[in-house]
Design a protein around this nucleic acid. Structure first.
Lengths: 156, 156
DNA sequence: CTCTATTATCTCGCTGAACGAGATACTCAC
DNA sequence: GTGAGTATCTCGTTCAGCGAGATAATAGAG
């Protein structure tokens, strides 16, 4: 049962890389007086900003798997640290939009930029077929982990 | 600054896969009345078992980044759930060896087995050059995340 | 063998993230 | 403007993890 073949080396490598990426985030969190949840929240906020979506408190909580009380607390912490701000939605004044501060974006880029840059640099060293393999493997793992059907056929 | 090129798609894919793997672990934890730390502890215990190393309470705490009080609490929880047991070391009776219970190993295999199996299955679809690319990328990312020198130059 | 320094683990009291329940503020349909 | 519905916040509680210090065992000096 231990040995599913030489492929296991790569499976362990993926796990090791995942752990290391988690520790990297934890370091960023710790260095800036935050917790894992706060970093995940910041990432959600930046993702939303990137594709021009509005992020409400409720939606953020849903993404993070928190209840409303926990969501309020996260936003409180980010606001206290100056990483985000609450803005009442003009159209529906029950809603609170959460916007990431420029300062936090810069902080994140300073910390994660080198890692991203290095990854891109690595990827530039591969040809199209190799890139397709990496893409395919990561996509497959993501689907398998998300519980998606084990459909072996490549999606269109 | 936003667009480092088409390689960014894969960087985001890696992040998505990492998030999904984390959620998968969280689901396992939740389903079995555990927390993220407990699962990480179990993984450490299984890794130790796999390569025949003894795991002491102290070493486990070190791996998890916990202090002694927190470590005691983790082992207490695992023991209460029947996933691990304390065994006094015969040679140095100050030390407590923590051993994973067979039940927990089986539980883990039942939950993570399909994911691992699917990953291996995916990998079997690639030839040696593609596998080398996947290996190389994951290795590089892990090194970059662990803070290893960002040197593009291969260390002689 | 006894005394002391060191090491490994556990106990106690505390802080703070996240929860459940319910209060508050706003919108929409009538 | 009254009532149903929705979004967020407040209050009190639970529990993981921390710091400090207690307890127990080993190792070395005499």
């Amino acid at each position: 049962m231990k040995d599913l073949g030489p492929e296991m080396e790569i499976v362990h490598l993926l796990r090791a890389a995942t752990v290391e990426l988690g520790l990297h985030s934890a370091r960023f969190a710790h260095d800036n007086g935050m917790h894992a949840t706060d970093v995940r929240a910041l990432i959600c906020l930046m993702d939303a900003r990137r594709d021009g979506t509005e992020m409400t408190a409720g939606r953020l909580g849903g993404l993070l798997g928190l209840n409303s009380a926990g969501t309020t607390a996260v936003v409180d912490r980010l606001e206290r640290l100056g990483h985000a701000r609450r803005v009442r939605d003009g159209r529906d004044r029950r809603r609170v939009l959460v916007e990431v501060e420029k300062r936090a974006v810069e902080l994140g880029q300073a910390f994660f930029g080198p890692l991203i840059g290095r990854s891109v640099e690595l990827l530039r060293g591969y040809d199209e077929r190799e890139l397709a393999a990496i893409r395919g493997f990561l996509t497959g793992v993501r689907e398998a982990a998300s519980g998606a059907a084990s459909g072996a056929e490549p999606d269109g």
